[in-house]
Design a protein around this nucleic acid. Structure first.
Lengths: 223, 223
DNA sequence: TGTACATCAGTGAACGCGCGTTCACTGATGTAC
DNA sequence: TGTACATCAGTGAACGCGCGTTCACTGATGTAC
């Protein structure tokens, strides 16, 4: 009801307001978390009254959903782009570097994405959207891995490019969790690169940093 | 203020009420998510009035925190127990099986734990509690791995039992994310076992199932 | 073990604030001539 | 390009519900003798 039923053209003013609200919501959600932010606060951050919100969205849930889709598409494009840079041969180290950069750079996005995960975990419809986004990321990775499959074999345990792509996403999710808690993006990037190397090669990679938590280095590091 | 300042003995009745409220809250939080549940609903589920809640907790946040600590301790004990079963030699396959069982069995716990993660990500004090819990899990794993370190070497990329334990936790987190979305615990357990095998061995493990999403098996599986 | 009393734990009605939602309005934008 | 008009987008005051919080109370629990 609040959202226009008329399929007419969207005025510039309207498009601008909508974009402003989405941007403001992203910032505010990242700080406080979706579900802890009243509509009023989003509107204030965007510089509009509450009426403007209701003129563009039916609910905060709808806005959140739109926000997720928009940003997720952006990320998926960036990842696909980062993977397309190499020639036919895959420079694993460089590719991992670039993808890691895209995926772990923006803490705000990780926060919002995790809020979205929490909702998706309880609503199969929302879950479908998130699974589609993940499938898109996986496909980009799997395609890239498959391209060099023949000459650089993947470890047997993972049994294929699809499975390897799954492993990459799982490693990403795992490192994300750690990063959300310890707020150390440098550490997270090095650690993700190391995990991916361990997963995608047969142990021929060279570690650069010890990912062990600096507060509990009780185990010997000497080879 | 709501919580008794007197350090006197806790009556049986009181302890019972508190436990009832915590149990009811766990169930209700799992279904709806913390932050989407009014106090009234927890009380109703537990069979008490709101006054009983305020007599035992200052806020839902405090209850949630107590709830997390209680369950996290339980899980940590179970994992430590599952790892202690073997003799001096580590049967990787069996240990992975048992730990996986404990960690991925209870969807309700995964949901509540993720809610807690979302809060921890925005509050360093809460994060500390969660990091401590994770450190405890890691230590149990690292100690176990270190015990067999000498005869069954870990892959070089991971560079030590501590790092390997980190990798195990990251794999667990990654698989948890996937499980929250696809609700397929069988698949998740097989997949986690496979990931752990890939991480903890030098590729000598044997895959049982293809973790690739059943809806997009476009890549060849033939070796 | 029984009774009398004191304190404690939980009740539930009442209060009031925060916030979602509505709507009559006004200024902005776009169209027709 | 300018003017007149129609429609659209955003305003903000007002309403009212949901829910957090309080508190005078009553029944439950534990203690003393």
């Amino acid at each position: 009801m609040a959202v226009r039923a008329t399929a007419g053209r969207v005025t510039r003013r309207r498009a601008r307001t909508r974009a402003d609200l989405l941007d403001a919501a992203f910032a505010v959600f990242a700080v406080k978390g979706f579900g802890r932010v009243p509509i009023e606060e989003v509107c204030e951050a965007a510089g509009y009254s509450r009426g403007a919100f209701y003129s563009n969205f039916a609910s905060l849930d709808e806005l959140f959903f739109a926000l997720y889709r928009e940003r997720a598409d952006l990320i998926a494009d960036q990842v696909a782009g980062a993977l397309a840079l190499d020639g036919p041969d895959l420079d694993v180290r460089a590719a991992v570097e670039r993808v890691t950069e895209v995926l772990l750079l923006d803490r705000d996005w990780l926060l919002v994405k995790t809020d979205f995960l929490v909702h998706a975990a309880r609503d199969p419809d929302v879950a479908r959207t998130l699974l589609e986004h993940r499938a898109r990321l996986r496909r980009a990775i799997a395609d890239r891995l498959a391209r060099t499959h023949a000459r650089t074999p993947l470890p047997a345990v993972l049994g294929g490019a699809e499975a390897a792509a799954h492993a990459v996403v799982a490693a990403y999710d795992g490192v994300t969790t750690q990063l959300l808690l310890d707020r150390d993006p440098e550490h997270a990037r090095g650690w993700l690169a190391q995990l991916l190397t361990a997963l995608l090669t047969d142990g021929s990679g060279t570690p650069e940093t010890n990912p062990g938590n600096s507060t509990d280095n009780t185990t010997d590091n000497t080879p």
